[in-house]
Write a protein that binds this DNA or RNA. Structure first.
Lengths: 211, 211
DNA sequence: AGCAATACTTACCACATGGTAGAAATTCTG
DNA sequence: CAGAATTTCTACCATGTGGTAAGTATTGCT
């Protein structure tokens, strides 16, 4: 029987709900997610087949469907996992003001070594603009949240007097995130693109203190 | 026989090479291109089927293939046509300096009424990051050219003393275009996004003169 | 060892895809 | 009107897709 969606817990040990199934299976799930990230990034959601992902894991495609019963379920699992990862990196210790902006530059710098992740988010974000795409609400929500958080960071910076006069926090937030997204695309086409540097230059122009 | 790729011209009247075939056929080609733009924008290249496009034109799918023998050929035709359109709007009268930057803001403003086009370019640009995608070289070239042109505009502005000290033309160009792309994605998710205004605010901060 | 939960496999299905063959309809030209 | 060029259709095909059914290994627990 499929462990999905895995609501009720009453089977063998019922210890933590995080590690149900055998270690074998959990490892396979991780592997599938990993390969799925890579392939969704390379070819998009629509351009990737379950058989392709399964093959990269050395599994038949129903073998994959045992862990993720649906292509859509796999997509959402991938997004959820990556989001947790990113949240842990960004919002975990509640970065406020200039420190929060610096954190964004750091993420950009890190991303230069994580092509798969950049590929995934740019591909899917562009693909999911139509409301019927399975990842649509995920990205709509994501933009809303990230813009809100960045706006807050700018507002905090302004309260500290770190912001140049005439910089509107909400506008600056939208600009910064748009810039980040756009730079990622440019970087995918030309790896010589300096994402972090270009980003830093932009932010610095809005601040009264060095970044 | 298929008119494609249509190199040699020796048939009936052989007047201009632009209007080969019957008026009927040329109209159909325009219609196909139009619907293809919309669908490639909505669902991406990989997510759109020839039958879908053909259906929207009230034509069977081999009927479509008569005009564009291959899905890839159709894609390239679409891109080529849109590129000509954009070039006519942007680079035609060689916009230099601040005027060139103003032109970009105008385009952004115009785009707010052309969702299909925005959809097309954001979808395809993200999809075509992998080198084997049929539109890859198109977009790689496009970024190269547009960045070069915008860099030139900034350089001209600097020579005129219109540029704030410390603004590097090449960096500013990359920033501006990344911003534009990123804002388009945000706008697709939230139509309330003010692309032109946000763009203008960004540029204004780099200039010593009003935009 | 015995047994149940877990993790897979092979074999299938209905459907959609891009592409092709060849015939029929349409349109223009002489 | 006749004939040629152009446009479009019906009928296929091979392939790939997500998904399902039912059986087989594998793993861990008692």
């Amino acid at each position: 029987m499929s462990p999905y969606p895995g609501e009720e817990a009453s089977r063998p040990t019922m210890t933590a709900e995080a590690n149900r199934g055998y270690a074998n299976g959990r490892a396979r799930q991780r592997e599938i997610l990993e390969k799925a990230v890579a392939l969704f990034g390379e070819s998009g959601y629509r351009g990737t087949s379950l058989r392709e992902i399964a093959a990269r894991c050395g599994v038949s495609h129903p073998g994959l469907k045992y862990h993720f019963p649906t292509k859509e379920a796999l997509l959402l699992a991938v997004l959820e996992q990556r989001d947790e990862d990113d949240s842990a990196r960004m919002a975990a210790d509640d970065p406020v003001g200039v420190e929060g902006l610096r954190r964004l530059v750091e993420i950009a710098a890190l991303n230069a070594d994580r092509r798969v992740v950049v590929d995934l988010f740019t591909s899917l974000a562009a693909e999911a603009t139509t409301p019927d795409h399975p990842a649509h609400t995920f990205f709509a929500e994501r933009y809303r949240k990230v813009i809100a958080a960045t706006t807050a960071a700018y507002e905090h910076a302004r309260e500290q007097g770190h912001l140049v006069a005439g910089v509107d926090p909400a506008t600056a937030a939208r600009q910064l995130l748009a810039l980040m997204d756009g730079l990622q695309v440019q970087w995918l086409y030309d790896p010589a693109t300096d994402m972090a540097g270009t980003l830093r230059a932009h932010i610095q122009r809005q601040l009264t203190v060095p970044l």
